[in-house]
Design a protein around this nucleic acid. Structure first.
Lengths: 124, 124
DNA sequence: CTGTATCCAGTTGGATACTG
DNA sequence: CAGTATCCAACTGGATACAG
């Protein structure tokens, strides 16, 4: 692939780096954690309360992935007990804006989707 | 929830309908199939060739889900052997535009993510 | 060509217990 | 509080065989 040409990136190719990024977004909790951190810094327990339904294990795992990809920064304060804060990096903010487009879309089109499902059941 | 107020929709609530839409997008192949159909109608075998790495089973399953949600319409031509075409509905086109924002983001920020990963490994 | 059906390995993710 | 470690059930998804 000619990596000097942005158009050469092919999201449909499993070996293309852009596909890897796309796959990461497809992980179950990634989008929701990004949206939760969009308004500002949160502690681990606050995140867990915000993203309803996520388990401790999955929250930790998702945060590690986002940290690794440079989306989230993690700060530990040596209080007793320990305090840990998570914040979006500029890169993370940029991505969360794109994810927010999807959230807005979802909310705006709920009714149409519900109608389509009802009709599908009817016909099926 | 007050369904007359769009602001009442809470993507973080597992029982909110907007969350269901968001979850659907998180399924592995949904985004890629939407992007593949964005430029225009494709047959089953063409789709399969385009979305590299998808199996027949997963393509069928993903298309059924999109059809059920009113994103994709399916047309069967009684040729021998049979021909089946898939096209985005207006609703599907609208969603694929939002997904395309993510594709563009992914391609634009690959380098930054790679750099972050390298640094993370270094520190880790 | 466009599916459906079945089997099965691998992964995901929840529950629980424990630690600094 | 913020994790880590372990076990295990459930689901995902690939391979294969078969059908209209």
């Amino acid at each position: 692939m000619d990596t000097n040409d942005p158009m050469a990136y092919d999201i449909f190719n499993p070996n293309c780096p852009s596909r890897a990024v796309f796959d990461r977004l497809g992980e179950r909790w990634t989008g929701l954690v990004l949206l939760a951190l969009k308004p500002g810094t949160l502690r681990f327990s606050e995140l867990r309360r915000q993203v309803q339904g996520i388990t401790q294990k999955m929250l930790t795992q998702t945060l590690r992935g986002l940290e690794r990809d440079g989306m989230v920064s993690r700060t530990v304060y040596p209080t007793v007990p320990v305090t840990v804060e998570y914040t979006l990096t500029p890169l993370g903010h940029s991505l969360s804006a794109a994810v927010d487009v999807l959230r807005a879309w979802a909310i705006e089109h709920i009714d149409e989707i519900d109608a389509a499902r009802a009709e599908y059941e009817q016909a099926g």
